[in-house]
Design a protein around this nucleic acid. Structure first.
Lengths: 138, 138
DNA sequence: GTGCACCTTCCCATGATGTCAAGGTCAAGC
DNA sequence: GCTTGACCTTGACATCATGGGAAGGTGCAC
C-alpha cells in the first residue's frame, strides 16, 4: 500500500504521514526498491488512531503518550484516563476564555447602534478600556 | 519614551511592538539620534487599543480594520459592529467544536475504570472508532 | 572608564498543516 | 520503445502570534 492509499484510507494526508514519520510519532515506513513508502494494516490502524485523536483535539505530544499506552499491553487505564482528564481541562479552560470574550463582545455589540454614525461602544472600549465594562441590563 | 516603557505601559511586549511595526500594523516609531525608538501618548493609546483587541481574540487582520475605523472620524458604527459580529461567530464556532470534543471525552472517560488494568474505552474508541459513540446513560 | 540595563537587528522555534517546486517512478496506451 | 499522466520523493516556505536568543551598540550611574 502506497502513501496515497494509506492517506485516503486513514484520513491523514500524505503530507502529514511523512511529517509524523519525520518527528518520530510513527515508525519509519517500509520502502520499495525505488524508495516508495509502503504501509500495511497495522500502519493503517496507527494512522487512523492518530486521526481520531487529532479529531478530539489531542496534541501530538499527548498522542505520542496515547500511542505508547495503546501499544503497551501492561498499561494501566488510569494513565489513559489521566491524559484524557488533562486534555478535558485544557479544552474547558479554552472554552471559558472564549466564553468570556463572546460575552463581552455581545454586550458591547448590543449597545452599538450599527448605523451610519461613528459612535460605537466597541471602539470606545478598545480605546479606553473603561467604556462600560460591567453588566447594565441583565 | 523608550520601547521598554511603552511596553510595560501598554501591556504589549517590546518584541511585539517591533513586530507590529514590521508588518505595518502600527506606524514606524520615531527614533532618537542613536536609533532608539521613541513613543508618545498617541502611540501608547494605539498599543493599548491593540492589546485590548487581542485580549478579545481579534486577529491582526481584524485589528488592522478596527484601527482604521477608529482613526476614521467618518466611520459608520455598522462597520465596527459587522467586524465584531463576524468575530463572535468565529468564536462561537470554535466553542461548539470544543464543546463536542469535551462531551465525547467526558463520556468516554466516565466509562474508563482508571485503575491498573489495561481495558479502556478511550483507547478502544481511538483504535476502532466504533467503541461506544452514542449516549448510553444520560 | 567600567558595569549594567537597555536598545538594535537578525535568525530560529513553536504546532499542525498547506502549498509549491523540481525531479524520480509506475503503469497504461500507442 | 516512447509518451503521458498520476503518483511518489525531498525540500523549502507560508500560516499565526509569539517567544527566545545571539551579537553588538547606547545611556547612565558610580
Amino acid at each position: 500500500m502506497n502513501i496515497g492509499e494509506a492517506a485516503s484510507a486513514s484520513g491523514v494526508t500524505a503530507k502529514m504521514i511523512r511529517h509524523y514519520e519525520s518527528i518520530g510519532l510513527i515508525a519509519e515506513a517500509g520502502r520499495t526498491g525505488s524508495g516508495y513508502r509502503t504501509y500495511g494494516p497495522k500502519d493503517l490502524a496507527t494512522l487512523s488512531f492518530i486521526r481520531r485523536a487529532r479529531d478530539l483535539g489531542f496534541s501530538i505530544a499527548q498522542i505520542r503518550d496515547l500511542l505508547a499506552l495503546w501499544q503497551d499491553r501492561d498499561r494501566a487505564s488510569a494513565d489513559v484516563k489521566r491524559i484524557a482528564a488533562g486534555h478535558i481541562e485544557e479544552l474547558t479552560a479554552k472554552m471559558r476564555q472564549l466564553q468570556e470574550m463572546v460575552m463581552t463582545l455581545q454586550h458591547l455589540s448590543a449597545h452599538c447602534q450599527g448605523n451610519d454614525r461613528p459612535d460605537c461602544p466597541i471602539l470606545e472600549r478598545l480605546a479606553s478600556g473603561t467604556g462600560d465594562g460591567g453588566a447594565c441590563c441583565d
